[in-house]
Design a protein around this nucleic acid. Structure first.
Lengths: 194, 194
DNA sequence: TAACGAATGTGATCTACATCACGTAATCAA
DNA sequence: TTGATTACGTGATGTAGATCACATTCGTTA
């Protein structure tokens, strides 16, 4: 499916926009393509856009002083990604976003989002809905982190993103789960049929 | 400060409502008071309201099968609390909310919030803003969980809620940090002057 | 003011996972 | 095809924090 249709279908699930409204809405997005491994947002820079994934897979992640990486999100088609803390507060990025595969994404600037939200009530409703979902998902993941062991979280992750299993290297899955790649490897091989 | 003024001041920081609009907005809230230890939301029941804290302190928490408690949030005055997953998805509560002290809160039903969001664009903007902040805070806490040791998270918590230190028993702080009360006790006493 | 339960402190032991070290397999670029 | 880089597996060892057990202090209520 092309970018415009994908976005339209995604938005239509939540709010009804007239064709003119959607055209206007869509006119604020810009198509961008990246190759596997390229960087979309990197730590320290200004962030003024968020991204809607059309094809491929992004990851957003934090890297600490000891160069350990923690993945906040894998963004598959119809998912949104950015450094929202930096975007909303107009501060420098503290997280990175890059491409796990070749990707096509639509970018929307913070100013344009806010303008669209002001101009079209339905658009504001859509973005409120979107953040609500993100908030609930984030709380759920936090709880799972506190409550469940690594194996359970690994199974949860595969249930949430079944496509990931073959799409991304295992050390990235470990970085999402917050464990070392060695631990994930042992875990994974322990439950294999022998 | 009385409930109405506190809510008005809180909302005014983000959006401008006319006096009539605010009166109308406020008319959908209901004052509720609880004693220390009473339950506001408990697991398994239907959830149809969210709460704005006027005075006192709530906690929202999850209890797992082994009866271990994990605190998602301490809600102080001007903070909002509910089981948002249950509220938004109209499912049964999986988390509990109860009172750490005597409290006064304002309740707003889900239906009324949605109605107000439809009727007054500014109100929708306010709630979008509120969820955005919650989302960013939740992501930040998740990262801290993955990246920092218990001591660092303990110091972060006290920086975020300085009032907590004397306001709540230490085993609740442990439940927020996701560690056992014994571990927190040792941590805390290790850094004491002798 | 007595007494009971809740909150806290602290030792001993156990365990999941990190870290380090090294080897092998797969992928990619020239 | 080959060399280099990246992904992955696995043993040995270290450690933060869990768990269990029990003592002590504090607060509430009768």
């Amino acid at each position: 499916m092309d970018a415009k249709s994908l976005l339209k279908e995604h938005v239509s699930k939540i709010v009804s926009l007239t064709d003119e409204q959607f055209e206007y809405f869509f006119s604020h997005f810009k198509t961008e393509t990246y190759k596997k491994g390229q960087t979309v947002i990197s730590e320290g820079q200004n962030v003024d856009k968020e991204y809607f994934v059309i094809s491929g897979c992004l990851k957003s992640f934090y890297v600490n002083d000891e160069v350990k990486m923690y993945i906040l999100q894998f963004a598959m088609p119809t998912w949104w990604a950015s450094d929202y803390a930096a975007l909303y507060n107009k501060t420098k990025a503290t997280i990175n976003v890059d491409c796990i595969s070749d990707v096509e994404i639509l970018s929307l600037s913070n100013d344009d989002r806010e303008k669209l939200c002001r101009e079209i009530h339905e658009v504001e409703h859509f973005f409120r809905w979107r953040t609500n979902r993100g908030y609930v998902a984030s709380q759920k993941r936090l709880l799972s982190f506190m409550n469940n062991d690594t194996k359970t979280r690994y199974e949860e992750l595969l249930a949430l993103y079944p496509a990931l299993y073959n799409a991304v290297p295992k050390h990235l899955i470990a970085a999402y789960l917050g464990v070392s790649r060695e631990t994930l490897s042992r875990l994974y091989n322990a439950s294999k049929p022998h």
